[in-house]
Design a protein around this nucleic acid. Sequence first.
RNA 1: UGGGGUGUCGCCAAGCGGUAAGGCACGGGAUUUUGAUUCCCGCAUUCGUAGGUUCGAAUCCUGCCACCCCAGCCA
Length: 547
Amino acid sequence: MKLPEANNFIEQIINEELEAGKFESVGNKIQVRFPPEPNGYLHIGHIKAMCINFGVKDKYNGKLNLRMDDTNPAKEDYEYVNSIVEAVKWLGFEYDKLVFASDYYDKLYEIAEKYILDGVAYVCDLSAEEITATRGTLTEAGKESPYRNRSVEENLKLFREMKAGKYPDGAKVLRAKIDMASPNINMRDPIIYRIAHVPHYRTGDKWCIYPMYDFAHPVSDAIEGITHSLCSLEFENHRPLYNWFVERSGLPKPLPRQIEFARLNITNMLMSKRYLKKLVDEGFVRGWDDPRMPTVMGLKKRGVPPEALKKFCADVGVAKAYSVVNQAQLDSCIRDNLNENAERAMAVLNPLKLTITNYVGEENLSFEKNPLKQDGGERDIKFTGSVYIERDDFSLNPPPKYKRLCKGGTVRLKSAYIVRCDEVKIGADGEAEELFCTYFPETRSGSAQPSEIKAKGVIQWVDAKYGVDAEYRQYKPLLKDEQYPDQDYAERLDTESEKIFYGKAEPYLFENGEGKAYQLIRCGYYKSFAGEKVLSEIVSLKDSFNK
RNA sequence: UGGGGUGUCGCCAAGCGGUAAGGCACGGGAUUUUGAUUCCCGCAUUCGUAGGUUCGAAUCCUGCCACCCCAGCCA
């Protein structure tokens, strides 16, 4: 068998198993799954998990189920499943089937009865507090439940009564009979089913008992014929239990194997649902798709191309060591992608009027839409000799090595002419209000530059007559510092994280609202924005692109 | 003082007994009508630590040390 080259330890394991013939009975088909719980929105951490799972699927020509791990009706809803599906599709991942853990409720129940019949599960009447109290501690063994040795018949009867709704929430649970003295606390008779008289968003009130993750997940994997169940490190301690459930399920081999990897952490990015929800609920951001959010929809709105995110995940790699990736690494991937693909346009956030005193009439200037793409096309911009430039591109007191405009200095208006600033009109606030310049016709872009007229800098501009008014929302990172702010997170929020500018932009920016990038020539970095539906509103990228 | 994991450059990360890949960041230089891009060049005599085995170790063995995870009827 010809095996693909393994790019990480997971693929290495798969290769070894394939080589050993572990999956011959299923035609060497690898099956994986991506199993979010529909109780929140997908974020960049999930993207890493998707890249790993979809990556395995593609590499081995296998199958992947998008599975909603919906076994806790109190938290789940269609709102989330829809957003998850939407996010997966936007990222361009193609799954084979959309499935739900709740599809398996009948089968799961049946297997639970099998455990009872096999004498490895029992109904326990202990209260939640009592169970906690008898579970023991990290260093002490737990105590066996007094209900642990009920007969198979009694367990079956009780379990069926639980299912039939005879008992209130919390009155009874079904437990696995494993080992109360196990050093692995997960193995101390974990709960399989709990009673919850809560309607489920899919099954309604058909059930009043719901399976626990530790049971439902491995068994769902086995039901689907998953060969590799890839999850994050915190489930390592659950693996023995995973195997315990799967081995006793009676489901056909090959049984799924759980492999854990380190989850993604990025400096200054909080990904916990609890935290993100707070930001939304308490109005720190405009919603789950706010460009400052690390959610998939937030990233989309920020103008981040899916391919940049995939590249980032590929760069970061898959390993088991706890790590925090520097956000600069993400930014680099985004910049790379934008540099390669984004169409160019000019805009000024904070306009300063520049009038050319010796210019008459108007003309068209030609611009490349994307200098990196030979066939990127061109666009025309009107030039009337009266323009707006970025306020930062002019300085009353230029620092040493300043390359842009100052009084008496020259600068090139990109793709137009070199101008010299002759006069500065100072406003009441002491700041420059308008610049009066001379332009040099012979320096028109494209013509051979006369040696006597030079400009060190090149700045962007928007024509005063043809440029359109634009509102910019500029976002900064939500957190000033610290990875996990915990309870006092609110104090660390940067209240200036959203700033409004009223600037100018060339009309081209609005031709098709979304995902176009513009750049500030002065800084030479890219800012991307996802155009909102309202034309006058441009959302610029957060500060992370600043140097 | 239980169990399960992990420790390779500032941050990720290859490496699987034959003499430390790559990316990000950083520094230097060249080209440039974006202080961007592109392009060169530099950036771990050393792999948590102390020993041992070996002709040879980041890789094998032993002991220490540090950090992470686990005591939800959440996932």
